[in-house]
C-alpha cells in the first residue's frame, strides 16, 4: 500500500451515471489487476474504494458509478484537481491460473477491473473472452475498448436493448469453451456465474469498507478457508473457498 497525491487528468461520462477518471501519479504501486484504490474526498469522513480499471507507471484509470454523495462529488471533479489516494489495495486477480482461454464476466460497475486484466492476459498470449452485463443499452460502456484490445466480447442487457437479451449467464453458450473464469459484479451475478461455470474461477466481491487496508475488520466474510477481510485478503476469492 502506498499513500500519495494524484492529479485528475480527465473525468468523463461514459454512460448513464458512469464516469471514467484518469489520475496522474505513481501507478507503480498497483501490482495486480482487480486491486482497488481508496480516495480521500474533501468533506467526507471515509475514503471511497474504487477498483482499478487500468494503470501505467504514471497513471491509474478508474471507472465509477454515481451511487451516493461521494461519487456525486467525484463526478464534479475537473482536470487538475488533486486527490489523496491509497493505492495497491487488495489481492487482485491471479493471472497465472487463467489457462489458455479465460472467460471474464463483469456486471455493471463490476466491468472495469476486467479491462486491465483482459489487456494483461492478452499481452501474455492468452485467449480472452468477455461477457459484459448491463440492465439496458444506456448503461453499456467499454464494449469497444475490450474489442480494441482483441478480446472476444459479448454484451448482455436485461431488457434486450443491446446485445444478447438477459443476464451474463445467457451469453455462456455463445462464448463457448474456456479454462478459467474471472468475474466481478453484484453478488447475485457472481452466484449465477458460480453455478453456471464448470471450471475453476476467481470472484471479486464488494462490501462496505471502513479502512480498505485490513485494520478495522469492517468488511469481513466467512470462507471455507477461514474468515477473510474483503479489503485485504480479497476482494478476489477463489471458487473453492466461497460460502454463499
Amino acid at each position: 500500500m502506498q499513500q500519495s497525491i494524484f492529479t485528475v487528468r480527465s473525468n468523463i461520462c461514459l454512460a448513464k451515471g458512469v464516469y471514467e477518471m484518469v489520475l496522474g501519479g505513481n501507478g507503480k504501486s498497483v501490482t495486480a489487476p482487480g486491486q482497488f484504490i481508496n480516495i480521500k474526498l474533501d468533506g467526507f469522513f471515509l475514503r471511497r474504494p474504487i477498483s482499478v480499471c487500468d494503470w501505467s507507471d504514471d497513471s491509474i484509470t478508474i471507472i465509477y458509478k454515481v451511487v451516493g454523495k461521494g461519487t456525486e462529488y467525484m463526478a464534479k471533479l475537473e482536470a487538475g484537481a488533486e486527490l489523496d489516494v491509497l493505492t495497491g489495495l487488495g489481492n487482485g486477480y491471479d493471472m497465472s491460473k487463467s489457462g489458455e482461454t479465460a472467460l471474464l464476466i463483469g456486471g455493471g460497475a463490476g466491468v472495469p477491473p476486467l479491462y486491465g486484466l483482459a489487456k494483461r492476459l492478452i499481452a501474455e498470449g492468452k485467449k480472452v473472452k468477455v461477457i459484459l452485463g448491463f440492465n439496458t443499452a444506456d448503461e453499456v460502456f467499454y464494449e469497444e475498448n475490450f474489442k480494441a484490445i482483441g478480446a472476444e466480447t459479448y454484451v448482455t442487457t436485461v431488457d434486450g436493448s443491446h446485445g444478447i437479451k438477459g443476464f451474463v449467464t445467457n451469453a455462456f453458450e455463445a462464448a463457448g469453451g474456456y479454462d478459467h473464469t474471472y468475474s466481478c459484479g453484484p453478488e447475485p451475478m457472481l452466484k449465477a456465474v458460480y453455478n453456471a461455470s464448470e471450471t475453476s474461477g476467481q470472484y471479486s466481491f464488494e462490501e462496505r469498507m471502513g479502512c480498505g487496508f485490513g485494520a478495522c475488520m469492517g468488511c469481513s466474510c466467512k470462507t471455507k478457508y477461514g474468515n477473510k477481510r474483503i479489503c485485504k485478503d480479497g476482494p478476489v476469492l477463489i471458487k473453492e473457498e466461497i460460502i454463499w
Binding site: F45, L46, R208, M209, G210, M217, C219, S220
Partner: peptide, 22 residues
Amino acid sequence: FGNPTPRIAECPAGMINAVGLQ
C-alpha cells in the same frame, strides 16, 4: 467472527462501526 455485514456506516465527521469484536 463478529456481526454480519454491513458493519460500517459513514456520518458527517465520523463513522459508525458494528464489527462486534471479531
